[in-house]
């Protein structure tokens, strides 16, 4: 059942729990994300941020609770998994571009294989996206020949080529040199302004303050605080003790 009502949340997480072996990594995580909302997930290292967003497109399997994406419940039904994955794009910390394919092939592969687009159409679309991430001239290079910032922008274009409704970012700038962080963040800001639903795990507080609609603060597998960025980063207001400790360190 797909919901076309813009008021309905596009992602619903209801009390999800996950264990790695006996280690309880996500504990009763519940959150609803609206269409066109930009959610930034922050929290100390090892708090379960990656695990959380990887559960949303089923790169990790949760054991309890419900995840419903665009009206489709995420369970063991393979068709549902495929449907959900094709609506969610993901960008990784380590880019994960396919080194044996050119930039253009990296972008066109999934549209041609999964969406059954023609090569011409996929390539036309790919070039548009490369314009959008501002590296059209790199189309025929291999990933190994690009800088980190360029690679991450290709990775974003690759995810966008599937025309997803939701984009997940897992620390997209953490493996980049400072001068490259900016170019990637610019692309992400453009994307946010264009109305894409986004969940970003990031340590870029400037980015969070500028574009986030909401901040989720994770600690030890739980969401301990959430709020709009203005309030969240305001040290004057009352915070959870873990949040305060975290903010004290970074601000």
């Amino acid at each position: 059942m797909k919901s076309n009502n813009p008021q309905d949340p596009i992602i619903v997480c209801n009390k999800i729990n996950k264990w790695y072996g006996d280690f309880h990594v996500l504990r009763d995580v519940s959150v609803e994300i609206q269409q066109r909302e930009v959610v930034v997930v922050i929290g100390p290292s090892g708090s379960g941020k990656s695990t959380f967003i990887r559960c949303i497109n089923r790169l990790e399997e949760h054991q309890e609770g419900d995840i419903i994406v665009d009206g489709i419940p995420l369970g063991n039904d393979i068709r549902n998994i495929a449907a959900i994955r094709s609506e969610i794009g993901m960008v990784f910390q380590q880019f994960n571009l396919f080194p044996h394919l050119t930039v253009l092939q990296n972008i066109t592969l999934a549209p041609m294989q999964v969406r059954r687009q023609s090569r011409a159409e996929a390539e036309r679309k790919a070039m548009e996206l490369l314009e959008r991430v501002r590296i059209p001239e790199q189309a025929n290079k291999y990933p190994g020949q690009l800088s980190g910032g360029q690679q991450q922008r290709v990775a974003i274009a690759r995810a966008l080529a599937m025309e997803p409704k939701i984009m997940l970012f897992d620390e997209p700038t953490s493996a980049l040199d400072p001068e490259m962080i900016k170019e990637v963040l610019e692309v992400m800001k453009d994307l946010a302004r264009s109305g894409m639903t986004m969940i970003c795990v990031t340590h870029e507080m400037g980015f969070a303050q500028e574009v986030a609609d909401r901040i989720l603060f994770f600690d030890q597998g739980r969401i301990v605080e959430e709020g709009d960025p203005h309030t969240f980063f305001n040290l004057e207001v009352e915070h959870h003790e873990r949040t305060r400790a975290f903010l004290d360190q970074i601000l």
Binding site: N57, L59, A82, R85, S86, I88, G89, M90, F92, Q94, N96, L97, F98, L109, A110, Q113, V114, A155, R158, A159, M162
Partner: peptide
């Protein structure tokens, strides 16, 4: 092959056969 390769391909919606043959 780093596991990230398979994850990226899966995240793009490719099925196991496609991931194996293409990636």
């Amino acid at each position: 092959i780093p596991p990230g390769q398979v994850e990226a391909a899966k995240a793009l919606g490719m099925n196991p056969v496609q991931v194996t043959l293409r990636i």
